[in-house]
């Protein structure tokens, strides 16, 4: 079955004249293909006839499956990008990174404490950071990777968690690091330690869970479950809307 890409579908929905699209040369692992301008790197590779099995996930910049390394034929610099979030350009030599070999530490979060050396003891290699900043330069999310590693090294778990929050775990940092640090795993530990031990927990939630477990809402909910659609519609239409009430009160 041929389904259509998001791009193709949208193109068909309007009869308006489509302006001529120019063609570009791209090199998929060294092989040249002519593709239309305006596509993502991912869509361009598909246009060329490839069906992704690896290196393709959410297609929206959240999952880190489509890390791409490229160099343009007239450039020295090696670039890092997400194939689903980057427009294809003429002369790109592209390679998709299908997998990142980077073992993570094994731990049960409930057995740990959020102490100065917690991260260092599980990931001692962070002490080898030479502050070259290559990790930061290879991050497609523009996260200050070296900074959060330095924070982790100093034992500032909360700051490491905050700086790394937008990490999509593509692993490009770990692929480039001359000190063999697995940054994105370090960041995962920092965030879990912060969420569990450093941030103040909710008292309202604790109370509500106890109420539910104590059966406080059982009668009320069973009544609702037993109601006819008409009764429920009546109740539904009479609901007080908190957001609206606040607005009126202002």
């Amino acid at each position: 079955m041929t389904t259509e890409t998001n791009t193709e579908i949208a193109r068909k929905t309007n009869d308006a004249d489509t302006p001529e699209v120019s063609a570009l040369n791209i090199y998929v692992m060294g092989k040249r293909y002519l593709v239309p301008a305006g596509l993502t790197i991912m869509a361009a590779i598909e246009y060329a006839g490839y069906q992704f099995v690896r290196s393709c996930g959410c297609r929206a910049g959240f999952c880190g499956a489509c890390s791409t390394v490229y160099r343009k034929d007239d450039e020295q610099k090696l670039h890092f990008a997400l194939a689903c979030q980057t427009t294809v350009e003429d002369g790109m030599y592209l390679v998709q990174i299908p997998f990142v070999p980077a073992a993570k530490a094994k731990y049960m979060i409930e057995d740990l404490k959020a102490e100065e050396n917690t991260i260092l003891s599980l990931y001692p290699e962070i002490a080898r950071c030479v502050s070259c900043n290559t990790c930061t330069k290879s991050c497609p999310q523009d996260i200050k990777v070296m900074m959060y590693i330095q924070n982790a090294l100093r034992g500032d778990i909360a700051k490491a968690a905050e700086l790394s929050f937008d990490c999509i775990q593509c692993g490009m940092c770990a692929m480039r690091c001359p000190a063999d640090i697995k940054h994105y795993h370090v960041a995962q530990l920092a965030r879990r330690l912060r969420g569990k031990y450093i941030d103040t927990l909710s008292k309202d939630l604790k109370k509500r869970v106890a109420e539910v477990e104590g059966g406080q809402y059982d009668k009320e909910i069973e009544e609702l479950v037993g109601m006819s659609e008409e009764q429920l519609r009546g109740l539904y239409n009479k609901r007080e809307i908190e957001a609206k009430k606040k607005k009126e009160g202002e």
């Binding site: 330690l193 912060r194 569990k196 941030d199 103040t200 309202d204 939630l205």
Partner: peptide
């Protein structure tokens, strides 16, 4: 919370 999810909170933890 027990897993360590970093939800957006007010200063008092709510």
């Amino acid at each position: 919370e027990e897993l360590g999810v970093m939800y957006d909170r007010h200063d008092n933890g709510e």
